[in-house]
Design a binder for these strands. Structure first.
Length: 405
DNA sequence: TCTGGGGTCCTTGTGCGT
DNA sequence: TCTGACGCACAAGGACCC
């Protein structure tokens, strides 16, 4: 499998029900109750917290918003196990969830708080095992290979230390899988959730991994799974039995060999401790579908605001970009994107809006829109003197009033 | 009854220069 | 001068992930 380095020990650490667990730390009175996290933050949410002067744990149950009677757009980001028992779950529309479980408590998503907890648990990991790859707010890969104790019991001893240290520092639990590579470690971390540690050795591939559904491979989503299923391939073992050439013929010369390697548990990707962003974007789904002509003024305001937010993100992160793009989603949920690459990298809102406005003129605008997005890609780090927001006197009088379409 | 937001990567098609 | 092969850049869409 990893003949080059059979002692390679890679861990995947996944926080257990991260958002819900953070919320239960803030609101211990909600333990065991059906709680749904999602939707837009509302003024009432802030008012409730303010009424108790930020002492969230003292808010009585009858003051929380309930799903019953929920009207509007929005999906569930996550739900507690008690709520899942009613059939509600991630990505479900809140109105549908309200019918299934009207008594559920509705909490707004608070990414800033989740990011704070994310930083704390990652600091704990880095203090113990410094080769860590950030894979989002609630999961990381860690290279145990050269960490003192990282080889003991196949990595179990170090995994236990990490779990204990994270729990002490944050009050949160996590699951850890340790294997010869990232692919198998990711699968292993799912084996004993929550709070589990799973060790996979190379020789255990057939017994532990081959019986699993293909969908358990990180990178096989619903489409690829359906296509495999149409050929009668349902388990990773069945995938492993497919000749590589057959997979190349049916899935292409990139995906085909990858599927074969994945089924055989082979994955040489390193744990990457640093990466640069490729693009920065902002998008928003409207409260109601908007028409390009009838709602032109409102669309223009939203469009300008999106460009400003992207520009702020770029400047805060210290990037400029040459490829400016837009995304629209129509009322029938079909999506169109357009982008344009310019000669000089940009990062100021007016310039982004000008190019994005050109892109917007290239999409059909005969149907109502439900979403609008703005993206900047082909990022570069600007020269130091260019970091300050560019000021163009010639444009000062007309930064955002250029025609939308 | 619907279906968020912020990303990365891959595939396909096309235009263009050699 | 025309044609095909090839590499490259870019654009658009889509799959997938958290």
């Amino acid at each position: 499998m990893t003949a080059a380095d059979p002692s390679r020990r890679i861990a995947h650490l996944d926080m257990d029900a991260f958002y819900a667990s953070v919320e239960l730390l803030r609101y211990p009175q909600l333990a065991g109750l059906p709680v749904v996290i999602g939707g837009r933050r509302r003024a009432e949410d802030d008012a409730l917290a303010a009424a108790f002067d930020g002492r969230l744990a003292e808010i009585p149950l009858d003051r929380f918003a309930r799903l019953q009677g929920y009207v509007g757009r929005g999906v569930i980001t996550t739900a507690t196990y008690a709520a899942r028992a009613f059939g509600v779950g991630s990505a479900m529309g809140l109105m549908k969830a309200a019918r299934l479980c009207p008594q559920a408590i509705l909490l707004p998503v608070d990414f800033a708080e989740y990011r704070r907890y994310s930083r704390r648990f990652k600091e704990v990991i880095l203090s113990i095992a410094p080769v860590m790859e950030d894979r989002g707010v609630d999961e990381v890969y860690i290279d145990f290979t050269h960490v003192p104790g990282g080889q003991r019991e196949g990595g179990r001893v170090l995994a236990r230390l990490l779990q204990r240290s994270i729990l002490e520092a944050t009050g949160l639990s996590c699951s850890i899988g340790v294997a010869p590579n990232k692919l198998l470690a990711k699968m292993a971390s799912e084996f004993h959730k929550p709070g589990g540690i799973s060790i996979v050795q190379p020789e255990e591939l057939q017994a532990l991994v081959w019986p699993l559904a293909c969908r358990k491979i990180n990178g096989i989503g619903p489409k690829a799974d359906a296509k495999l299923g149409a050929h009668g391939i349902r388990t990773i073992g069945e995938l492993a039995a497919c000749p590589r050439d057959w997979l190349v013929a049916h899935f292409g010369k990139s995906t085909g060999p990858w599927l074969h390697e994945a089924a055989w548990g082979r994955d040489e990707r390193p744990v990457v401790t640093h990466s640069e962003p490729v693009s920065v974007s902002r998008e928003t789904t409207f409260e109601r579908d908007l028409h390009a002509v009838h709602d032109r003024a409102e669309l223009g305001r939203i469009f300008t605001a999106l460009c400003q937010r992207v520009a702020e993100d770029l400047q805060r992160k210290g990037y400029m970009g040459r490829t400016i793009g837009i995304k629209v989603r129509y009322d029938d949920f079909k999506t169109a994107t357009r982008d344009q690459t310019v000669a000089e990298p940009l990062h100021d809102a007016a310039a982004i809006r000008r190019v994005a406005g050109q892109c917007l003129k290239r999409v059909p605008l005969d149907k109502r829109l439900r979403l609008l997005g703005v993206r900047v890609g082909a990022l570069v780090k600007p020269q130091p003197e260019a970091v300050a927001p560019a000021h163009h006197p010639a444009e000062a009088a007309d930064p955002y009033t250029a025609p939308l379409f």
